[in-house]
Simulated assay, not measured.
Amino acid sequence: MTACAGPGAAGARSTPSPTATPPEVLCARIVAHWSREVLDGGTYGDYQSMGLSNGQFDILRSVVDAARAAKKREGARAAVELIDRQSREGCAARYRSGGPSSGPWQ
Protein backbone atom coordinates (compact mmCIF):
# COMPACT_ATOMS: atom_id res chain seq x y z
CA MET A 1 0.00 0.00 0.00
CA THR A 2 1.35 3.41 -0.88
CA ALA A 3 1.00 6.63 1.05
CA CYS A 4 -0.99 8.08 -1.84
CA ALA A 5 -3.74 5.49 -1.79
CA GLY A 6 -6.99 6.77 -0.43
CA PRO A 7 -9.76 9.26 -1.14
CA GLY A 8 -7.50 11.73 -2.97
CA ALA A 9 -5.50 9.18 -4.95
CA ALA A 10 -5.07 9.48 -8.70
CA GLY A 11 -8.08 8.16 -10.54
CA ALA A 12 -10.39 8.71 -7.58
CA ARG A 13 -13.47 10.78 -8.37
CA SER A 14 -13.72 14.03 -6.52
CA THR A 15 -17.19 15.05 -5.48
CA PRO A 16 -18.18 18.37 -3.96
CA SER A 17 -18.79 18.42 -0.26
CA PRO A 18 -22.51 18.22 0.52
CA THR A 19 -21.91 20.81 3.24
CA ALA A 20 -20.21 23.39 1.00
CA THR A 21 -22.00 26.73 1.11
CA PRO A 22 -22.87 28.11 -2.33
CA PRO A 23 -21.09 31.38 -3.23
CA GLU A 24 -24.35 33.31 -3.55
CA VAL A 25 -25.25 32.39 0.03
CA LEU A 26 -21.84 33.43 1.34
CA CYS A 27 -22.11 36.66 -0.65
CA ALA A 28 -25.56 37.41 0.78
CA ARG A 29 -24.37 36.79 4.34
CA ILE A 30 -21.37 39.07 4.11
CA VAL A 31 -23.19 41.80 2.16
CA ALA A 32 -26.07 41.77 4.67
CA HIS A 33 -23.65 41.88 7.60
CA TRP A 34 -21.71 44.86 6.28
CA SER A 35 -24.88 46.60 5.11
CA ARG A 36 -26.21 46.52 8.68
CA GLU A 37 -22.85 47.77 9.98
CA VAL A 38 -22.81 50.67 7.50
CA LEU A 39 -26.45 51.51 8.18
CA ASP A 40 -25.76 51.65 11.93
CA GLY A 41 -22.37 53.35 11.65
CA GLY A 42 -23.15 55.73 8.81
CA THR A 43 -19.87 55.24 6.95
CA TYR A 44 -18.28 52.79 4.55
CA GLY A 45 -14.94 51.14 5.10
CA ASP A 46 -12.57 49.78 2.51
CA TYR A 47 -14.26 46.97 0.60
CA GLN A 48 -11.14 44.80 0.77
CA SER A 49 -10.94 45.10 4.55
CA MET A 50 -14.58 43.96 4.63
CA GLY A 51 -13.63 40.85 2.65
CA LEU A 52 -15.74 41.93 -0.32
CA SER A 53 -15.00 41.91 -4.01
CA ASN A 54 -15.63 45.04 -6.05
CA GLY A 55 -18.87 43.52 -7.39
CA GLN A 56 -20.06 42.59 -3.90
CA PHE A 57 -19.29 46.13 -2.76
CA ASP A 58 -21.48 47.45 -5.58
CA ILE A 59 -24.32 45.30 -4.22
CA LEU A 60 -23.63 46.59 -0.70
CA ARG A 61 -23.82 50.24 -1.76
CA SER A 62 -27.10 49.66 -3.55
CA VAL A 63 -28.53 47.78 -0.57
CA VAL A 64 -27.44 50.46 1.93
CA ASP A 65 -28.91 53.27 -0.19
CA ALA A 66 -32.25 51.48 -0.29
CA ALA A 67 -32.07 50.59 3.42
CA ARG A 68 -31.41 54.20 4.41
CA ALA A 69 -34.51 55.30 2.51
CA ALA A 70 -36.58 52.48 4.01
CA LYS A 71 -35.38 53.34 7.52
CA LYS A 72 -36.54 56.95 7.10
CA ARG A 73 -39.93 55.91 5.72
CA GLU A 74 -40.72 52.76 7.66
CA GLY A 75 -38.26 52.35 10.52
CA ALA A 76 -35.28 50.20 11.42
CA ARG A 77 -37.05 46.82 11.21
CA ALA A 78 -38.14 47.46 7.63
CA ALA A 79 -34.57 48.49 6.75
CA VAL A 80 -33.13 45.25 8.16
CA GLU A 81 -35.69 43.14 6.30
CA LEU A 82 -34.88 45.02 3.10
CA ILE A 83 -31.15 44.45 3.65
CA ASP A 84 -31.65 40.70 4.00
CA ARG A 85 -33.93 40.48 0.96
CA GLN A 86 -31.89 42.69 -1.38
CA SER A 87 -28.60 41.07 -0.33
CA ARG A 88 -30.01 37.65 -1.28
CA GLU A 89 -31.45 38.95 -4.55
CA GLY A 90 -28.34 40.89 -5.56
CA CYS A 91 -25.99 38.02 -4.80
CA ALA A 92 -28.25 35.45 -6.48
CA ALA A 93 -28.22 37.57 -9.64
CA ARG A 94 -24.44 38.02 -9.45
CA TYR A 95 -23.75 34.29 -9.11
CA ARG A 96 -26.56 33.01 -11.34
CA SER A 97 -24.09 32.12 -14.08
CA GLY A 98 -21.52 30.66 -11.71
CA GLY A 99 -19.76 33.84 -10.62
CA PRO A 100 -17.63 36.63 -11.95
CA SER A 101 -15.65 35.85 -15.06
CA SER A 102 -12.69 38.20 -15.10
CA GLY A 103 -10.21 39.04 -12.37
CA PRO A 104 -10.19 38.21 -8.68
CA TRP A 105 -11.63 41.62 -7.79
CA GLN A 106 -14.86 40.96 -9.65
Rank of each mutant, 00 (worst) to 15 (best):
V31Q: 00
L26I: 09
G55W: 01
L60A: 01
S49W: 08
H33V: 01
Y44W: 05
E37N: 09
Q48S: 09
T15I: 13
Y47C: 07
Y44I: 05
Y47W: 14
G55R: 02
S17N: 15
A20M: 06
S14C: 15
Y44H: 05
L52K: 11
G55K: 01
W34R: 00
L26G: 09
R13L: 15
V25N: 04
P16L: 10
A32S: 11
L39M: 06
L26R: 15
L39E: 08
G42I: 04
T15D: 12
S14M: 13
L26S: 11
E37R: 14
E24I: 04
E37F: 10
R29T: 09
S53Y: 07
E37M: 13
Q48F: 13
E24R: 15
I30F: 15
Y47V: 05
L39D: 06
A28K: 03
G45N: 02
L39W: 05
V25H: 07
D40K: 10
G42L: 08
G51F: 12
T19P: 06
A28T: 02
G45Y: 04
L39I: 07
T19D: 11
G51W: 13
M50P: 14
P22I: 02
S35K: 00
D40V: 10
W34N: 02
A12C: 06
M50R: 15
C27S: 02
S14N: 15
D46C: 07
A20E: 01
R36C: 07
S49C: 06
L26P: 10
S49P: 11
L39T: 04
